[in-house]
Write a protein that binds this DNA or RNA. Sequence first.
DNA 1: AAAGTGATCATG
DNA 2: ATGATCACTTTG
Length: 168
Amino acid sequence: MDTPMNILDLPAPEAARVLIGKILVRRLPDGTVLRARITETEAYFGEADTACHACHGRTKRTETLYHPAGTIYVYLCYGIHWMLNLVTGPAEDPQAVLIRGVEGASGPGRVTKLLQIDKSLNDTPLGGALALADDGFVPERVEASPRVGIGYAARSDQARLWRFTAAE
DNA sequence: AAAGTGATCATG
DNA sequence: ATGATCACTTTG
C-alpha cells in the first residue's frame, strides 16, 4: 500500500495520475479542517519540459521546485489566482503536480480559493497546514489528455498527455 | 470575446 | 527602472 509520501517520490506524470482520488486536508489557522478529493491534475516534469516553470533553470520563483518531494509550491497567476502544486521526484530535479480540480471546485484558481491557500504555504512541507490523507480511493477510471494553458511550450511538450481527470 | 490583476523575470 | 508574460476566472 502506497503512503502519500511514496506517491510524491514518483516522477511527476506518474504521481499526477495516482493523486487522482486522494484527499487533501487543509487545516486553517482557526482550527477548522477542510477535506477535498482531487479530481484533476497536471504534471510538470523537469527542466527538459518546456512547459515547466523550471525550463529556464533556477530562479527565485522556481527555487521551490528544486526542493524535496512533498514540498508545496504556490505562485500567483494573472495577478489574481494562486496555483497549488506538490513537488515530486528527487530533490534538485524540478518536478511538480498542479492541482487543477477537487470535488466542489473545478479549476486551479478555484481550488486555492476553496481551500484558502496562498503564498504563505509556498515552500513549506506537506503535513501541516496542508496534508494528504491516507484514505483516498481509486476512481473507476482516470483519463489522460493534453495540458491546458501552455501555448508557450514546444509543440512536442504540448502534445504530452500529462493532464489527468477522474471519470466516474 | 476580452478585461482584470500583480508578481516575476529579462532587459537596459 | 520598465515592459512582457503569464499552468486563470468572470463577465458580457
